[in-house]
């Protein structure tokens, strides 16, 4: 089956089984490996992307339900060469350790800030349910606060 999706502003027609999760279309079909696999059951958030502007866990989104959607991945988060304010804050606060969860963290944070430009600690905690096995949560919170002020 062929499906049309727009990823980071480019239209793609992908010919895969309809039950293929968006995650694997991005990674294996389109070669966009910045989006990670951590659990496959929408628990960890490593696979978070924006679907029509909303943060979603791409490991459980079947491609057949996304025909025509606009997807943004970590590769497309920044525009015009300058890092996204969330990415900048992530560097300033030196958030990543192993880094594997961080694409998902950043995509979740970017969606939070576009909806709630100045989130409270409670709102940050509610939105940031991603798992980080390296335990970078303290700095994730600090970086979101910083990006909110930027």
């Amino acid at each position: 089956m062929a499906f049309n999706i727009t990823v980071n502003g480019m239209v793609h027609t992908v010919d895969v089984d309809g039950d293929t999760p968006l995650l694997w279309v991005l990674r294996d079909t389109l070669g966009l490996t910045g989006t990670k696999y951590g659990c496959g059951i929408a628990e960890c958030g490593a696979c978070t992307v924006h679907v029509d502007g909303v943060a979603q866990r791409s490991c459980t989104l079947a491609i057949e339900d996304l025909d025509g959607s606009e997807i943004t991945t970590i590769e497309g988060l920044s525009s015009g060469g300058a890092p996204h304010p969330v990415q900048e804050a992530w560097i300033t606060e030196q958030v990543p350790q192993c880094g594997f969860c961080q694409s998902g963290m950043i995509m979740t944070a970017a969606a939070l800030l576009s909806e709630t430009p100045n989130p409270s600690d409670g709102e940050i905690a509610e939105a940031m349910t991603n798992i980080c096995r390296c335990g970078t949560y303290d700095r994730v919170r600090a970086a979101i606060r910083r990006a909110a002020k930027a």
Partner: peptide, 11 residues
């Protein structure tokens, strides 16, 4: 600053 961090925030 860690040298590996820029690559870990842009995928």
């Amino acid at each position: 600053d860690r040298l590996d961090i820029p690559a870990k925030v842009d995928g």
